[in-house]
Design a protein around this nucleic acid. Structure first.
Length: 486
DNA sequence: ATGTCC
């Protein structure tokens, strides 16, 4: 079952689904992809999901999808949708995803691959021992009921200021400073908090990882230098989200939202697009809980970084400050937040930008960027597969004009999890990775099989499209040398 | 993604 509707080529990198395609579409759909990607997309349901999102009340300009588009719950992964609260705009949990504020952070260091040498193996082993990974795993950090409310309200700011973990600079180099205003811990269920209380500081499973990487190629020396990156440098990339807490918030909300569209007279082409007006009791309850889960996720990645720093300190017998292990940046790629954007030429509005498997990519000069990055734009980390590469980009002016300041978020799967496991029969993925120069540690053999390099599209093709489309510019390619997973 | 079914 593929997509049989119209796809009009706008230019080399983007395609339009006209709003005449489906009744109820309020705006066009726009998909960023090259010719080869578009051919494959015809066999996917995801373009129909882009069209469905275009029917949501209050949607502005267009329903967008990034080149790593694939099918998801209600909204496609790689989807971007901005709604205006003053135009009847809605908030939809499906437009955020189950893993609220899943995201990526990159930590740099003074170390080089050359200097690391034989110390890589014990380093990866120590990371695997220190950092909890896998489904349902808890961490060594504990939060009482009062403390979890603090964490949900303040995010990593609570960890830095009240618990002395990490430093103020860590907050400055996190999207939204790691704290969304208007978080409502009191709108998060007891069950969600219980799951979250023991899991903060754990990695999780699936595509989540912590990776030791080497800067393999620099595309833009000047920008790389501003981000503190250089050829041959050792970095650590962390990909994780809000664990069981965010999942539970999404699950709790979807239960409540089943009958809400009808209550407000909202007609939907797919029940999974369940939503509520931003200006409604139900909308405000989800927004408050979602923001709290987002703050939790930033706290989680902050604690993961803290544990990485501890391991490096022990392995190299120097402080993390001495090792130069500063946070380059932390970005969310599953979130909805209010931002100022042009909804028409010269008309600025505060809109609710849903990014589901899509990354904010603010250009140089944006007021939300830290001073150090004003001249280069916001760093964007794009994880690829664990055997090939990840990318660092920076936001470009085209993102504001075209996609509400957004770019892609990853390679995107090309094989289902079951197909990946089947394809791994009789093979040893860890051994194959070792042959490619990557030390991989995971609790589950099946987990590694699901995440094998073949399961993913070529991340470099995805990055090429967003670069050519002017959404974000390439800075550096990162090659994995050690990875820990669930 | 997720104590992959309270």
């Amino acid at each position: 079952m593929g997509y049989e509707g119209p796809l009009e080529q706008i230019d080399a990198n983007s395609w339009r689904i006209p709003k005449s395609y489906k009744s109820g579409m309020r705006v066009d759909g726009v998909i960023f992809a090259d010719d080869a990607m578009m051919k494959k997309l015809r066999h996917d349901q995801a373009p129909d999901q882009v069209a469905n999102v275009a029917t949501l009340p209050g949607i502005q300009r267009a329903s967008f999808a990034m080149p790593d588009i694939h099918w998801g719950y209600g909204f496609c992964i790689g989807g971007v949708c901005a709604t205006d609260p003053d135009d009847g705009g809605v908030i939809s949990p499906g437009g955020v995803g189950y893993d609220i504020n899943c995201g990526v952070r990159l930590i740099r260091s003074h170390l080089t691959e050359k200097k690391l040498g034989k110390r890589l193996r014990p380093l990866v082993d120590a990371l695997f021992e220190a950092i909890p990974t896998g489904v349902g795993r808890g961490s060594r950090f504990r939060f009482s009921e009062k403390e979890i409310d603090q964490l949900l309200a303040k995010g990593p700011g609570y960890l830095v200021r009240d618990r002395g973990i990490g430093c103020e600079r860590d907050l400055l180099f996190t999207e939204a400073n790691g704290c969304l205003e208007g978080a409502r811990p009191d709108f998060v269920s007891q069950r969600a908090k219980q799951r979250g209380a023991s899991q903060c500081g754990s990695l999780g499973s699936g595509n989540h990882f912590a990776e030791v990487q080497v800067v393999d190629h620099v595309f833009d020396e000047k920008v790389a230098a501003t981000l503190g990156l250089f050829q041959g440098q050792v970095c650590v990339m962390i990909h994780s989200g809000s664990r069981g807490l965010g999942y539970q918030v999404c699950d709790d909300t979807l239960r409540v939202f089943r009958d809400i569209p009808a209550k407000y007279g909202i007609d939907l082409p797919d029940r999974q697009l369940a939503c509520a007006p931003i200006v409604s009791e139900e909308g405000e309850r989800y927004l408050g809980a979602m923001r709290a889960a987002a703050n939790y996720a930033w706290g989680n990645r902050h604690l993961l970084m803290h544990q990485v720093r501890e391991v490096f300190e022990e392995q190299f017998d120097r402080t993390w400050e001495d090792l130069g292990m500063d946070l380059v940046y932390d970005i969310a790629h599953n979130i909805a937040k209010f931002e100022e954007h042009d909804v028409a030429p010269g008309t600025k509005r505060r809109v609710c930008v849903h990014r589901k498997g899509a990354t904010r990519a603010f250009p140089p000069g944006h007021p939300e960027l830290p001073d150090e990055y004003q001249s280069v734009g916001q760093p964007v980390m794009i994880p690829g597969d664990m055997g090939t590469a990840s990318y660092v980009l920076v936001g470009a002016p085209g993102s504001m004009e075209r996609t509400f300041g957004t770019t892609c978020h990853g390679a995107g799967r090309q094989m289902s999890r079951t197909a990946s496991v089947k394809a791994a029969r009789g093979r040893n993925i860890a051994k194959e990775l070792a042959g490619r120069g990557v030390i991989a540690r995971a609790h589950s053999r099946k987990g590694l099989e699901e995440e094998q390099p073949d399961a993913y599209k070529d991340v470099s093709m995805v990055v090429e499209v967003v670069a050519r489309a002017g959404l974000s510019n390439k800075v550096a390619r990162m090659r994995p040398i050690g990875v820990i997973k669930g």
